[in-house]
């Protein structure tokens, strides 16, 4: 089986500043792959390139076998993108069901299947009971689960999750993790960008730590910990990214 993500020398600069600088990534089907790095390391820029939102300024990336620039349309059909920020303005006056149905139509779910498919994904994340409440009334955890559900409407091959548990309480985080594990058990591939090392440790089959737009180290969580004799991934992360506090951002 081919790779789900294959990026070579992927680069992107903004006005002379290289946000992503020659990154290589390979992700196999069924993997949960973690993209880790300090704030500003280039995680979101990488994700935006892989989600066809930002053209690379150098290198190339194939997602599900299609080039993210030349065949962006084919890539979009095959990915579910769950953004970091929940988007209340985008949907807060809609009910969860309405949002899911509208997005199902936008993913070209056949018209007669839209209602059923929206109900299925809402059920999958445990929101059936709340489907007819306004998104405005949802808690942060419910909104996140709704976004996750909406990323699944078209049965994507790859799910891109940008900080899926940011700001969630412990219960909600565990629920989101359970959903992610459940999806992977069914063969979904997941690209997970996160700042939570415990999350990466629990979920990821393999991960890459990036800093200054470049790969610092890659491997399974166990490999990375063993190599440094570090007890936690936090420790691995701090050692690889240099310092406990980044001077550039402290001020």
């Amino acid at each position: 089986m081919g790779l789900i993500i294959e990026a070579e020398r992927l680069s992107r600069s903004f006005g002379g500043h290289a946000a992503v600088d020659g990154l290589a990534l390979t992700i196999a089907p069924g993997e949960i792959f973690g993209l880790l790095g300090p704030n500003g390391a280039g995680k979101t820029t990488t994700i935006r390139m892989l989600a066809t939102l930002l053209p690379p300024s150098g290198g190339a990336a194939q997602v599900c076998g299609f080039d993210v620039v030349r065949a962006a349309g084919e890539v979009r059909k095959r990915i579910g993108y769950v953004m970091q920020q929940v988007s209340p303005m985008g949907s807060y006056l809609l009910t969860g069901r309405e949002k899911a149905e509208i997005e199902a139509s936008l993913y070209h779910v056949p018209r007669r299947r839209v209602k059923a498919r929206a109900a299925e994904v809402l059920d999958l994340v445990g929101l059936s009971e709340h489907a007819d409440r306004l998104v405005q009334e949802y808690s942060g955890g419910m909104q996140k689960r709704l976004d996750l559900a909406c990323g699944l409407l078209h049965r994507p091959e790859l799910l891109i999750l940008d900080e899926p548990t940011l700001g969630l309480d412990v219960h909600s985080r565990h629920r989101v993790w359970d959903h992610i594990r459940g999806l992977c058990a069914e063969g979904m591939t997941v690209l997970l960008a996160t700042n939570y090392m415990d999350e990466a440790d629990r979920l990821c089959d393999r991960l890459t730590i990036v800093d200054h737009g470049r790969e610092v180290v890659s491997g399974t969580p166990a490999e990375l910990k063993d190599a440094l004799g570090a007890p936690t991934l936090d420790e691995v992360f701090l050692r690889h990214t240099g310092h406990a506090l980044r001077e550039g951002e402290a001020g």
Binding site: L53, I79, Y81, M83, S87, M89, S91, E103, Y107
Partner: peptide, 10 residues
Amino acid sequence: TGYLDKLLSM
């Protein structure tokens, strides 16, 4: 709010 990005990823 970034929802445009979500729409554009579709």
